[in-house]
Deep mutational scan, measured.
Amino acid sequence: MDVFMKGLSKAKEGVVAAAEKTKQGVAEAAGKTKEGVLYVGSKTKEGVVHGVATVAEKTKEQVTNVGGAVVTGVTAVAQKTVEGAGSIAAATGFVKKDQLGKNEEGAPQEGILEDMPVDPDNEAYEMPSEEGYQDYEPEA
């Protein structure tokens, strides 16, 4: 019985440690998101679009440190934060509304985080759909 109880105690310690790591990862992701939003706020009209992409990228980098179902929630929060940063930029006159959601080359930025393969159960990952990809044929 002692062996059984000791095993359960060790398992509990492992769960607590994993929860603490997840909590730490979420806190880091939130900190990076805040950094990115402050970065966007300090940019001029020309830099705002690039700044919004930076927020998304920093958040995406930190999301990889967070495991399990938390990833889905962090990704949703990050996307809403990026959308909010863009709205703030438009409201303050840093950028025109028609410039939001495009990178410096004018290509749409939507789907940055949505296409990231995420499995809350950590069982399997699927690649994003290939609808947006084109076949590449090298020139002879």
Rank of each mutant, 00 (worst) to 15 (best):
V71Y: 14
M1W: 00
F94A: 07
A30L: 14
A140L: 04
E46A: 15
T64Y: 06
T75K: 14
A56P: 00
E137T: 11
A53Y: 11
I112F: 07
F4R: 01
V95I: 10
Q62K: 15
V77H: 09
E130F: 10
V52G: 00
K80Q: 08
T64E: 08
G73D: 02
A90N: 13
E28I: 10
L8K: 00
T54D: 01
E137G: 09
E105L: 07
K23N: 01
E126I: 04
N103W: 08
E139I: 12
Q79I: 02
K21M: 03
A11T: 15
G86E: 10
N103K: 03
V95M: 09
G41F: 10
A27E: 00
Y39C: 07
G51A: 15
S129Y: 12
E20G: 02
G41P: 01
V63G: 06
T75V: 13
K60Q: 03
D121M: 14
S9Q: 12
A85M: 13
N65P: 05
V3M: 11
G106N: 07
A90L: 10
K10T: 03
G132R: 11
V95A: 15
V26Y: 15
V52W: 04
A18E: 05
M116H: 14
D119C: 12
Q134A: 07
T22G: 03
A17N: 13
G67S: 12
D135W: 02
T22Y: 00
E13N: 10
K21N: 09
T64G: 05
E20I: 13
E130L: 10
S129M: 09
V63R: 02
G68W: 08
E130R: 13
F4I: 14
V95W: 13
A69N: 02
G68A: 15
E114S: 14
V40Y: 05
T92C: 04
A11V: 14
E139D: 14
T75Y: 08
V74T: 00
A76T: 09
A76R: 14
V77I: 07
V70E: 15
T81Y: 11
S9W: 09
K96E: 09
P108M: 15
P117Y: 13
E131I: 03
A27C: 10
K34S: 13
P128S: 14
S129T: 08
K58Y: 13
K45P: 04
K6S: 04
Q24K: 15
K102D: 09
A140E: 06
E46K: 12
V74C: 05
K10P: 06
V26T: 09
Q99H: 08
E137I: 06
K12A: 01
K58F: 06
V82L: 08
V82I: 07
P117S: 09
V63E: 00
E139M: 12
E126V: 08
E46Q: 04
N65E: 05
E46L: 10
V118Y: 03
E137H: 09
K21Q: 02
K12N: 04
N103H: 06
E35P: 02
Y125F: 15
G51T: 09
A85C: 13
K45H: 01
V15M: 05
G47H: 05
G47S: 12
K80W: 08
G73C: 08
D2A: 15
G14R: 14
V16T: 14
K60N: 02
K58T: 09
T72I: 05
E61Y: 05
S9A: 05
V63D: 00
G106P: 08
L8S: 00
A107V: 01
K96A: 13
F4C: 07
E126P: 10
V16M: 14
K97V: 03
A27S: 10
V3T: 01
T92A: 08
E20N: 04
H50V: 04
P138K: 08
S87R: 04
H50N: 08
V118D: 03
V77L: 10
E123Y: 07
E105Q: 10
D119I: 15
E110P: 10
K58I: 02
K58H: 06
P117N: 06
K45G: 04
K102I: 03
G7S: 14
E28F: 06
T64Q: 11
E110H: 05
G51D: 02
P120L: 11
G84F: 12
V37D: 00
G106Y: 10
V37I: 13
N65V: 14
T33K: 02
V16Y: 14
M127K: 06
E83A: 08
T75D: 07
P120M: 06
E104W: 02
E46P: 04
K45N: 08
G14I: 13
E83H: 08
E28R: 10
V55P: 00
V63N: 00
V66M: 05
M5D: 00
V63Y: 09
N122T: 07
G51M: 06
G67W: 10
E28Y: 12
E83T: 13
K32T: 10
G73I: 03
L113Q: 07
E13P: 03
A19T: 11
G31H: 10
T92K: 06
E28H: 06
K32E: 07
T75Q: 14
L38R: 09
Q24H: 12
D135A: 02
A19W: 03
K32D: 01
T64N: 14
K10D: 01
G51S: 08
E137V: 05
G73R: 07
K60H: 03
V49P: 03
V37A: 14
D2Y: 12
L38H: 07
E137R: 15
Y39P: 00
E131L: 03
T75W: 14
E57A: 08
Q62G: 04
Y39V: 11
E123R: 05
A30Y: 08
V95N: 08
L113C: 03
A107D: 14
P120Y: 11
K60L: 08
D98S: 01
V71T: 01
T22D: 02
G31D: 14
D98W: 13
G106R: 08
K43F: 04
A17K: 13
T75H: 07
T75S: 08
A107R: 10
E123G: 15
V118F: 12
N122G: 09
K6I: 02
T59M: 05
V52C: 01
A11C: 10
Q24V: 15
V71D: 03
V66G: 04
I112T: 04
G68N: 00
V66K: 06
V55Q: 00
G36K: 13
G93D: 02
S87I: 15
E57S: 13
K80S: 06
K32H: 01
A53D: 15
V52A: 11
G132V: 14
L38C: 07
Q99K: 07
L8N: 00
G51H: 15
A27L: 11
A53R: 00
L8Q: 00
S42E: 07
E35C: 15
A11D: 01
G101K: 11
P128F: 08
S42H: 05
E61K: 07
D121I: 13
G41W: 05
N122W: 03
Y125Q: 15
E20Q: 08
K12S: 06
L38K: 07
E28M: 09
V77M: 13
E126K: 05
A89E: 03
L38D: 05
K6N: 05
G47L: 14
V74W: 03
E110G: 03
A56D: 02
T92S: 13
A140Y: 14
L113D: 13
A69E: 01
G86Y: 11
Y133Q: 06
P128M: 05
G14T: 05
A85V: 04
P138N: 12
K80D: 02
